[in-house]
Design a binder for these strands. Structure first.
Lengths: 225, 225
DNA sequence: GTCTATAGAACGATAGAC
DNA sequence: GTCTATCGTTCTATAGAC
């Protein structure tokens, strides 16, 4: 466990970069802004990380492993408890959402800034960032796609693909810009209440995922599970 | 109707900026990139628009008025047809989504690039861009918030606020990065098929909006409408 | 209105002393 | 490992000729 009181330069940079990338986006967050937040020298970034791009990768990798592990563990537990039947959609969503939102309450996991950065990364237009996202999230994405398919037997695969994109979009939007909800609701909705946020998301998204689908024959597909 | 064959400098710049801002984001799309797309001089941008920020505002304003008008008209028609009862959720979603996606097929309305830009703007971290979005979208947002409330009587307002954010997030993600769905589905889902996209979105989102809600007392709220 | 030329600032990255 | 100083580039914005 690293002591905060004498955090080394590398950690100071990672912490500052996390906040800067989350709030401003990759392009707009300059190395000079990051060093001023971290209270270190400009050259230190290149010494420890090599480049801006490598810094983002380091920030991301530091936090994503615990989240991915927790997601995977929850999914595995759900699968074991379920046996051979279809998975509960809510359970799969929980395994996807809660480990990400849990970061907000634990500075060890990154805190609220890391939640924002996770969301931001998904909608970041920069190609380098998207490549990094694919490398770091690809396995998790595939794992959950399969789980959703097993939770929604009968749902045609293309329809599921559309719906998974909606799930990701809704998650990303709330995670990367929680201020918007607070502002729109004049403070009555608090995105910092992550237990509530998870519940609201799971309620909404599970209903969406389970919606009857259009068979393309003018009729509707059956209810799922 | 403006002739494309001898479009004036101002229009050339607007067209190029639309594509550049949509694909790269506001910060990453440089004026030099835009003038090279447009085939005009760098000074021309400042002469016609004054600043990069003012250029984005001009790009945005040129296209948003027809969309907002169409959205409002559809909502009004729905309200007139409905009378005093609750609005159909699907109808409200249609009025919100279809006018935006319709841009893709009509170069007069901006084409596919403008759909991407609409989505991109929503998730753009730049403060200036968010201020512009608030000014241009605020009235529409308020109008549709009211319509959703009327379509979902009994749904507590804070819950509705959460759900509207999920709707916006799902829309924005699909609009600003249609390539992701195509890639994730290995080409089997085509986001360019906007009729299908609208149907999939409306099916998913209306089910989410209508989901039973948690009353906070351990029981569930009634079904809506 | 359209251009060339350039100002002035900020950027990522690096060399080299300590 | 840490720093200062600076390189070379790119950015938005502008001055001024035509």
């Amino acid at each position: 466990m690293r002591e905060l009181r004498d955090a080394d330069t590398k950690t100071l940079i990672l912490d500052a970069a996390e906040v800067a990338f989350a709030d401003l986006g990759f392009d707009a967050a300059s190395l000079r802004h990051i060093i001023s937040l971290a209270g270190v020298n400009l050259a230190a970034i290149h010494y420890h990380f090599g480049s801006k791009e490598a810094l983002l990768a380091a920030v991301f990798r530091r936090r994503i492993a615990p989240v991915s592990a927790e997601r995977s563990a929850r999914l595995k537990r759900l699968e074991e408890q379920t046996g051979d039947g279809p998975l509960a959609v809510e359970g799969v969503l929980q395994a996807l959402i809660e480990p990400a939102l849990r970061m907000a309450h634990d500075p060890e996991l990154g805190g609220p800034a890391m939640v924002r950065l996770f969301g931001r990364t998904i909608v970041e237009p920069n190609e380098t960032v998207q490549k990094l996202l694919g490398e770091e999230f690809g396995a998790t994405f595939a794992r959950f796609s399969t789980a959703f398919a097993r939770a929604l037997p009968g749902l045609p695969e293309p329809v599921l693909m559309w719906r998974i994109q909606f799930v990701i979009g809704a998650m990303a939007h709330l995670m990367c810009d929680p201020g918007k909800l607070k502002e729109a609701s004049a403070g009555r909705c608090d995105p910092a209440d992550t237990d509530l946020a998870a519940r609201e998301m799971i309620t909404f998204l599970s209903a969406g995922l389970r919606a009857p689908w259009d068979t393309g024959l003018g009729n509707r597909g059956g209810e799922v599970a």
